[in-house]
């Protein structure tokens, strides 16, 4: 069953079950495929960026996702395209991290603290957001994927479970632990700055 969150992602001007852009892309129309990429690029690059942690790796991952999309156009079910893209994006990012482990230290609160500047003076909104995004790196791959899909992309817990191939219970556990870890990271960072 498709939940509202994913249905909203896939909703377009086309009647349900029919996507002329996808059909044209399947027929080999490169312009249609370009349009298809534009339609889903925020989903793919945005998710990959949060999972990978840097733009360069995110772009590499997005390129791979769209190439896989092109190769699998004939087999894809139109109604599940967004879920398919999320799943492939997560998998590609995981594969990339396995091949090339992140060079950013896991516990880099100290690094942040030493980065310069008084956090009380630089505690503006941008800094706070940057800190929160940085806290994503404290998470395991599965926790990060769960948080990115649930808390940033806004998928339901059931949709996240479907994308990650986990149970809803597992996803809830990952999400709760991840939120607490991130909050602890932010708190530790703030304490060290004082």
């Amino acid at each position: 069953m498709k939940t509202l969150a994913l249905a909203a992602v896939e909703a377009g001007d086309e009647p349900e079950g029919r996507d002329s852009t996808l059909e044209a892309a399947r027929a080999g129309d490169r312009a249609a495929f370009d349009l298809l990429m534009r339609r889903h690029e925020r989903l793919v690059l945005g998710t990959a960026y949060r999972l990978a942690g840097n733009l360069e790796d995110a772009q590499d991952a997005s390129q791979e996702v769209f190439l896989r999309l092109y190769r699998n156009l004939a087999k894809l079910d139109t109604g599940n395209l967004a879920a398919w893209l999320y799943r492939v994006t997560v998998n590609v990012c995981h594969d990339a991290r396995r091949r090339r482990p992140s060079t950013v230290p896991v516990d880099d609160a100290a690094e942040l603290a030493a980065a310069g500047g008084d956090p009380q003076q630089r505690a503006d909104e941008a800094e706070r957001k940057a800190l929160l995004l940085r806290s994503l790196r404290m998470l395991s791959e599965k926790e990060r994927a769960a948080v990115v899909l649930r808390d940033m992309e806004g998928l339901s817990t059931a949709d996240v479970a479907g994308v990650l191939g986990s149970s809803v219970g597992t996803v809830r556990s990952q999400i709760s632990k991840a939120r607490l870890k991130m909050r602890d990271f932010v708190e530790r960072y703030s304490r060290r700055r004082l």
């Binding site: 370009d34 534009r38 925020r42 793919v44 772009q59 706070r128 957001k129 929160l132 808390d151 940033m152």
Partner: peptide, 19 residues
């Protein structure tokens, strides 16, 4: 804060580069 940070769009050139 996470949602707000994520909602900020990336520059169009990044998407164009991927395409």
């Amino acid at each position: 804060g996470l949602r707000e940070a994520h909602a900020e769009p990336l520059a169009a050139e990044h998407y164009a580069a991927v395409r």
